[in-house]
Design a protein around this nucleic acid. Structure first.
Length: 636
RNA sequence: GCCGACGUAGCUCAGCUGGUAGAGCACUUCACUCGUAAUGAAGGGGUCCCCGGUUCGAGUCCGGGCGUCGGCUCCA
């Protein structure tokens, strides 16, 4: 048989030759350094046979940044971790240990709990294994043999995995350790030049909290120590952009034990907040949304009607005004309020669509351990709206919402990832309705040519949704905007409109929050910009620094002038050196600094831009520049 | 809710095996009035998260609670 190499040359091989055979045929050095075969785009263990006509490329120990090569390296390191743990903790039960982005983990069930201090010992053991040398041997066995083997070894999790596998099973052995594993793996442990165990966490078997909680050990590995160092350096740089750190540094907000999960917004943070509110309000108005305001407190019946009492009671706040009175619930979402508002009057088909918008304070009593800076809060504010439509208005409204979303996110130069979340196990309504609703959302995504993935079972109990996701500085994904199609809640609330046929019909409602939560959106924005906001968003746009005491008056009058033009300007006339005040302005990431001394006048201002670039320009020219920059946030 | 770690000045952190707290920055005052990323000196500032326990004595050890961080689970 023949396989095709990357340079299009053909290589003759015996039938049944493996990737390693092919590498050997090319050269002994390649055979030694080969880590993986990439065959027609997907990776294959070197121990597996090639087939006639396949296009083969070899990944070697020099492909130190190739994700597939790193995956194999880390997957193999995970096996070394399991071997080390089994040696140090006899009787430990092993579960699964895959490579992940930036590293790997392995899940164990320990007889006695371990702590982070134990990681060092385990890490040393792994290094010892590498120093001793390990080779991986692959074998294929029947399902029954695999089950029997792991039963004999008293490894119940492996038995369960083997039971659930279909077809034959592959095993990989290194040293005294054999694991049930699909591969691919390294030939041997030599390429593993840097290993670090990073953290310890609880994780439920198969991701289900009804199952046993296992102990997960996270780690990472690289082809060189320099790569590991670079990785740690990147993490440190990412942490410098963390919105929690910048929130304090830039005096935007703080969190307090006195009200966990409820940010205190400082004046500078409020500038950002209000910029989002202004954007939301202005753009909603252009698109026919009507701003409303509905109560914060409702009786329990409202939430029984909406279904939230059954589904989310655990996460709601209740207040009892006085002894013996009925409790009220603090609203965790706006839907019921908007349903009641719609139902307060007789509606005609001529009124539809009705688009109620409200950016109101909501409270959700999130489970302990889930709060996270601004990204997961108890006090949450959504740029919410509910659009009541007839069946044939659905498509048009959803298309318009997707366009609206694109418009909003483009303002910030960010691109969210779309997901289509389909029917969950526990839900209202018939399968026909769900088919219909899911199809409507998917059709909209396709019409607007938006890339998306499907998240099965992740929809709400009342309908499917399109979610927009973004990633924070540590690589975690967060849901931002959402568009949800709902046939249920209007029915629960008995909502109707009078149709042209003079009969009552139930409207369909589209729930949507496009930025999502203002708190979360701001958190992501702070990280996206690393605190260096564009001019139109900057809490302080210009700082005027008088050179000496004698220039304070002129600086103040320049400030007043810029203030009149609508810009956010401060004078820094502190009794500090010029260098110090410029340094502070840079650290606060103020976009423009104007140094004002003897040489300056309206005709010639000394302007320093964030980052250090300096120029001398007239006030008029500067104002012209500012007008252009300010317009980025408010395109006509 | 679960696993692990942590909680000391406004911020970032140090505080060894128990003997009633310290640095840098910030703040205040004084001197300097400065030309593009830190002027110098002096000073003020702490219920060491909370409650309980052990001890002659607890920031330090133990128990409980609250909060935060990294994960898991959850997320209308």
């Amino acid at each position: 048989m023949k396989v095709v190499l990357p340079d299009s040359s053909e290589l003759e091989l015996a039938d049944g030759a493996t990737g390693l055979d092919a590498a050997r045929a090319i050269g002994p050095k390649l055979a030694e350094q080969a880590v993986l075969a990439r065959v027609d785009g997907s990776t294959r263990d070197l121990r597996l046979p090639l087939a006639d006509g396949e296009h083969v490329q070899f990944l070697t120990t020099r492909d130190t940044e190739d994700p597939d090569a790193l995956y194999a390296l880390r997957h193999s390191t995970a096996h070394l971790l399991a071997e080390a743990v089994m040696r140090l903790h006899p009787g430990v039960k092993i579960a699964i240990g895959p490579p992940i982005a930036d590293g790997f983990y392995y899940d164990f069930e320990f007889a006695e709990p371990i702590s982070e201090a134990d990681l060092e010992t385990i890490e040393e053991e792994i290094r010892r294994e590498i120093a001793e040398g390990r080779e991986w041997v692959r074998e294929e066995v029947s399902r029954e043999d695999a089950i029997a083997r792991f039963e004999a070894e008293e490894q119940p999790y492996k038995v369960e995995l083997a039971r659930d596998a279909d077809g034959d099973i592959s095993l990989y052995t290194q040293g005294a350790f054999t694991d049930l594993c699909r591969g691919p793996h390294l030939q041997n442990a030599k390429p593993i030049k840097a290993v670090k165990l990073t953290s310890l966490a609880g994780a439920y078997w198969r991701g289900d909290e009804r199952n046993t909680q296992l102990t997960r050990i996270y780690g990472t590995a690289f082809f060189s120590q320099a790569d590991l160092d670079a990785h740690l350096e990147r993490l440190e740089q990412a942490r410098a952009r963390d919105h929690r750190r910048l929130g304090t540094q830039l005096d935007l907000f703080h969190l307090s034990d006195h009200s966990p999960g409820s940010p205190f917004w400082h004046p500078k943070g409020m500038v950002l907040w209000n910029a989002l509110e202004d954007l939301r309000r202005r753009e909603n108005r252009k698109r026919g949304y009507l701003e409303v305001k509905t109560p914060l407190l409702y009786d329990i019946q409202t939430y029984i009607t909406s279904g939230h009492y059954d589904n989310y009671r655990e996460n709601m706040f209740f207040v009892q005004p006085h002894e013996g009175e009925e409790p009220l619930a603090l609203k965790p979402m706006n839907c019921p309020g908007h349903m009641l508002l719609f139902g307060s009057q007789l509606r005609s088909y001529r009124d539809l669509p009705i688009r109620y918008a409200e950016s109101s304070t909501l409270h959700r009593d999130e489970r302990g351990g889930t709060l996270h800076g601004l990204l997961r809060v108890k006090h949450i504010t959504q740029d919410d709206a509910h659009v009541f439509v007839t069946e044939d208005q659905i498509q048009g409204e959803i298309d318009a919402m997707i366009d609206f979303v694109n418009f909003l996110y483009e303002r910030f130069g960010v691109t969210p990832r779309a997901e289509l979340s389909t029917r969950p196990e526990s839900r209202l309504g018939s399968d026909e309705q769900w088919d219909h609703a899911e199809a409507a959302l998917e059709a909209a995504l396709k019409r607007r040519d938006l890339e998306y993935v499907i998240s099965p079972g992740e929809g709400t109990f009342y309908g499917p949704k399109i979610d927009l996701h973004m990633t924070d500085v540590l690589g975690r994904s967060w849901q931002m905007g959402t568009i949800q199609l709902d046939y249920q809640m209007p029915v629960q609330f008995g909502l109707t409109y009078m149709g042209p046929d003079n009969r009552e019909h139930a409207p369909v409602v589209i729930h949507r929050a496009l930025l999502g939560s203002l708190e979360r959106f701001l958190g992501i924005l702070v990280e996206h910009y690393g605190g260096a906001f564009p001019f139109w968003l900057s809490p302080v746009q210009v700082r005027v620094i008088p050179v000496g005491e004698g220039h304070r008056e002129a600086a103040e009058s320049l400030r007043a002038r810029l203030d009149t033009e609508g810009y956010r300007v401060e004078v820094d006339d502190r009794d500090d050196t010029l260098g110090k005040r410029i340094r502070d302005a840079e650290l606060e990431k103020v976009p423009f600094v104007i140094v004002y001394g003897d040489r300056e006048s309206d005709a010639a201002l000394a302007v320093r831009e964030r980052g250090g670039e300096q120029s001398t320009i007239s006030l008029d020219a500067l104002l012209e520049r500012f007008r252009g920059l300010a317009a980025e946030g408010d395109p006509a």
